[in-house]
Nucleic acid binder design. Sequence first.
DNA 1: CTGTGGTCCTGTATGC
DNA 2: TGCATACAGGACCACA
Length: 280
Amino acid sequence: MPELPEVETIRRGLAAHIAGRSVASVHVHHPRPVRGQVGGPVAFEAEVTGRTFDIPARRGKFLWLPFTDGDALLVQLRMSGQFRLEDPSTEPHRHTRITFRLDDGRDLRYIDQRMLGGVDVSVGGAVLPPEIAHIARDPFDPLYDIHAVAHDAHRRSSPIKSVLLNQRIVSGIGNIYADESLWRARMHYARPAASLEPRDIAALLDTAAEVMGEALERGGTTFDGLYVNVNGDSGYFARDLDVYGREGEPCDRCGALIVREPFMNRSSYFCPRCQRRPRR
DNA sequence: CTGTGGTCCTGTATGC
DNA sequence: TGCATACAGGACCACA
């Protein structure tokens, strides 16, 4: 569920509280989120106990919690993963899957309703986990090369939205921010990437970075309890969305009614007047 | 090689 | 009320 702004909000929240903390104990409540661990939950608990966290890092929607020994905890939140830092005396959320007891007496709780994501020990992954070496840099990465991305995209036959969602081309953009960016750029989601000039694609990428930057300032987008920061609080960007989730409501720009269409097994929201469908 | 669709899960909303 | 269906902020993997 979380996209770049939400994951970055979580990363910052964790950075303020777990950097320098060591893990006193670990308890895995459900095996699925550690399914990648050889030896299962028991081995995971033993692997992580006693290690010390460094400053959390992120690429796109991937989060990792480096240990001071050079390894890391690689986290894929996918649709419903979240972290909360809470006092052990508070009642855990019903979907709490892993509890990390820290040496300051607080609990880091990994909560995940659907468990599509997971947590893995990444050997040697402190700087960049090898498991996500194929994930492209995101627009907030200092080494992100927007012109290289635009030229790559320009060679693609697929719809421009598929390009925005392809984490091997540019990472961090998900279904919400893809739709919001396309609306701002007045571009239809089905427009073939190859039909666009690299400069137009670069402008779209700039727009995507702009939208995600604004969302980050608001603490991310929340519709329900499935995205919250480490304190359990919601972000406020949902009230600033222009098209996502607004089927049947008037476009903020022209007043035409927002349309929802199926696209790649999910939904695309757009303004039929501002964002003209490509011919053919 | 590239691009698309099914799949992994649980929960909520909606319609009959 | 019960039941069925659709849908949900993602990404991997098989297959065309």
